[in-house]
Structure formats: structure tokens, C-alpha cells
């Protein structure tokens, strides 16, 4: 436990020291929100979105940006780099357990995601009048499960990629899929119906986030799928994880 706290402290410091990565993960969704929010038309209630503004409709997709960046992009790259450089192996020769480094990285990824989400929700509320999630419990559950599913997928990539380059290469398709079906590239109302429906079941489950945000309890099937992805990807990652 002592070693874990020390490792977490150092890893947190390294995380904060890497300013570009920090801004692009924690700050990017809010930055996009602000840019879009400066366009008056997007702040007007629109019958297309059940009388909500485009910003309200699009906010869950902005959460997907952080989740995809941290879970699928950064986490596997960091862990694969640590393995490639022998950091994990070296730790295995000391009284500390290399799993502590893994746990510290997961915890940091999680705090980055939560910070980013809180920042986004607050700025959306205070600057652009986007209501806070109306089903807070459902939203929290959908957010936690969606986050867990993407972090588990990130761990799976980290588990099998031999090098940081390989991790980035195998993360890219997944990253694009997550972003696309999360409605980041094209807002989902512009997607053909069946593509939008696929997005309901693609981690992190943007429809469940949108439902909970606007007050409809998320559908159990959507949540169950995220839980299933988490368990399957997490268990496979644990089984396949290479420490060197």
C-alpha cells in the first residue's frame, strides 16, 4: 500500500508535468463546447432535438471525446511505453509490485476523465444553460459503465501490444470507431438510423448518457452491454497482460 501511494504520487506528478496531454484530454471537450457555444443558432431550442438546443444534444458526444482519448489512446500508449522501456520489469525486481503502477495509471486516467466531465457539465450549465443531468443516478451509472468499458478496452490493447508504436497502431481503429459512433465526427441525427442505433451499443454508450442527461432512465440493455464489454475486455487483458 505504501509503495502504491508513492508510485501514485510520482505518476500524478508526471501526468501534471505533461501539459499538452493534460490539456488535450481534460480541456478539449470543454474547448469544443465553448467554440460551438459561440454560434448563436446552436444555443436555440430546436424541434429536431425534442426542443433542446444542439449543445444539450451534443454534450454527451463531447464526453465521448475524453473517454476515447484517455481510455483508448493515452492509457495503452503509456502502459506499452512503460513495458517497452523495462519500467515494469525493473519494478518487478524491487519490493514494489508492478501492478501498483498499473493501478496508479488507471486511477489517474479515471481522475482525468471525471475532471473533464465535471468541467464540461459545469461550463455547459453556467455558460450555455445546458441543464445538469436530469437523472443523476442513471447518468452516473451510464458514465461509470461507459468509462469502465473503454478503460478495459484500453487495457486490452496495452496487454497485447509489444511496443508503444504497436499500441498506438492498434488503438487507432478502435479510437475512430468510438469517436464515430459516439457522434463526435458527425452529430448522430445526421447519421443513417441504423448507424446511430449501432452507436447505442458501442462503448461508451452515448445514447444511455444522452437519455440520462435529458431525464429518461438509461435502457438496461445499453448498460448491460457496457458491463459485459468491461468484464470481457478486462478479464482478457488480465489474462494476456505481459509485464515485459
Amino acid at each position: 500500500m505504501h509503495a502504491f501511494r508513492q508510485i501514485l504520487r510520482i505518476e500524478a506528478r508526471l501526468y501534471l508535468r505533461d501539459l499538452p496531454t493534460l490539456l488535450s484530454t481534460v480541456g478539449l471537450p470543454t474547448l469544443i463546447l465553448v467554440v460551438l457555444g459561440l454560434i448563436p443558432a446552436l444555443r436555440k431550442p430546436d424541434p429536431n432535438f425534442d426542443g433542446q438546443t444542439f449543445l444539450s444534444y451534443f454534450a454527451p458526444s463531447l464526453l465521448v471525446v475524453t473517454l476515447a482519448m484517455v481510455g483508448v489512446n493515452i492509457l495503452p500508449a503509456v502502459l506499452a511505453t512503460y513495458r517497452e522501456r523495462g519500467v515494469l520489469r525493473r519494478l518487478a525486481t524491487t519490493p514494489a509490485n508492478p501492478a501498483a503502477l498499473l493501478a496508479a495509471q488507471l486511477l489517474l486516467a479515471l481522475s482525468g476523465i471525471v475532471t473533464s466531465a465535471v468541467l464540461l457539465i459545469l461550463v455547459a450549465r453556467l455558460a450555455f444553460g445546458v441543464p445538469l443531468p436530469r437523472d443523476p443516478v442513471g447518468f452516473t451509472v451510464a458514465f461509470v459503465l461507459g468509462t469502465a468499458a473503454l478503460l478495459a478496452l484500453g487495457l486490452l490493447i496495452a496487454a497485447v501490444a509489444r511496443t508503444a508504436k504497436a499500441a498506438q497502431a492498434s488503438a487507432l481503429p478502435l479510437f475512430l470507431v468510438v469517436m464515430f459512433f459516439g457522434g463526435v465526427y458527425l452529430p448522430r441525427f445526421l447519421l443513417p438510423e441504423f448507424l446511430a442505433r449501432i452507436g447505442d451499443y458501442t462503448p461508451p454508450g452515448v445514447q444511455a448518457l444522452l437519455d440520462a442527461w435529458t431525464g429518461t432512465p438509461p435502457q438496461p440493455l445499453h448498460l448491460a452491454i457496457m458491463a459485459g464489454v468491461t468484464l470481457a475486455a478486462g478479464a482478457t487483458a488480465a489474462k494476456l497482460f505481459r509485464w515485459e
Binding site: I10, R85, G86, V87
Partner: peptide
Amino acid sequence: RQRVGVQLQESQLPDRLRVAEALQLYASF
């Protein structure tokens, strides 16, 4: 592991980790 120190072939550290931080971290184990 408390009593054997090991320097492995080609093991590196994170780029941004500083000398004193690395040693203090390892000392804490």
C-alpha cells in the same frame, strides 16, 4: 527483493522523471 539490488539490461525510466524523484521513489520501497 529487500536484500538484492538489480540493474537490468536496457531498462529505462519515464522521460520526465527527475533524478532525485526516481531515487526517492525507489528508496520508499
